[in-house]
Design a protein around this nucleic acid. Structure first.
Length: 236
RNA sequence: UCGGGGCUAUCCAGG
């Protein structure tokens, strides 16, 4: 079972959901781990609906989901924007006899509310969260970025620094995305610079894209052009 | 004792 699950996961990572399913179907003893592996595979490869069905099937078989299982199921709810399912799953988690909510699961719960449009609920849970990792901040920053609230994104970014959490590439992708889409052009270049100089993160193509777009919209065409030209001299 | 599964952004694809 262990080897089969590892194989299933490998197929998933290679992008072959079909092969992953085949392995799963042929397995004799299906434990929570292999169910979770397949649920994750479905949720990530755009078949989130099937992920939820698998979850129900798993429970119907009397298997008790653990933290990773619930984390995957909530990721599926989030990608489907299915708030009622998400809430139902959340309720089950809270009903568990033992406390199974770890840091990752808590992030997944917050993300589910955020993606399903319940920003207030997500924010309340985030504020109450005890140990906030960089991923926790990324979840809430992405939420405000996508709902078009660049001011809050900036506040959260500052809050992150105050709390000593390190922003990463993903954090800055969300931040620059927020500024760009909301037409807030002043802070973008400041953050882009801080990303490199204060946090030692080298810009990825998505960061450059955001910046070039943002500078263009701001009418700072000379700076946009300068950035583009600087790219042409990079070894690649 | 050890071992297989879990959350976040952009783009792309799908719709």
């Amino acid at each position: 079972t262990v080897l089969e699950t590892a194989l299933l996961d490998m197929y998933t990572k290679c992008g072959s959901l079909e092969d992953a399913r085949t392995i799963f179907q042929r397995m004799k003893n299906k434990d929570v781990v292999c169910w979770t592996a397949l649920i994750t595979a479905c949720a990530q490869q755009g078949d989130a609906k099937e992920a939820l069905e698998l979850y129900k099937e798993m429970e119907a078989q009397g298997l008790q989901p653990d933290s990773p299982a619930y984390t995957s199921v909530l990721a599926a709810c989030a990608s489907l924007r299915d708030l009622s399912q998400g809430k139902a799953v959340h309720a089950r988690i809270l009903d568990s006899k033992t406390d199974i909510i770890d840091d990752i699961l808590q992030n997944a719960i917050i993300n589910m509310y955020a993606r399903c449009g319940a920003l207030e609920e997500a924010t309340a849970l985030f504020l109450r969260q005890r140990r906030r990792s960089s991923n926790s901040w990324n979840v809430i920053i992405a939420a405000y970025a996508q709902h078009g609230h660049p001011e809050q994104v900036l506040e959260l970014y500052k809050g992150m620094a105050l709390e000593g959490a390190e922003p990463d590439s993903i954090t800055f992708t969300s931040i620059l995305y927020a500024f760009n889409h909301a037409g807030v052009h002043k802070q973008g270049p400041v953050c882009f610079k801080a990303m490199q100089e204060d946090h030692g993160i080298s810009p990825l193509p998505q960061h450059y894209n955001c910046m070039i777009d943002l500078l263009g919209r701001a009418g700072r065409l000379d700076e946009a052009e300068e950035l583009i030209n600087s790219l042409n001299y990079k070894p690649d």
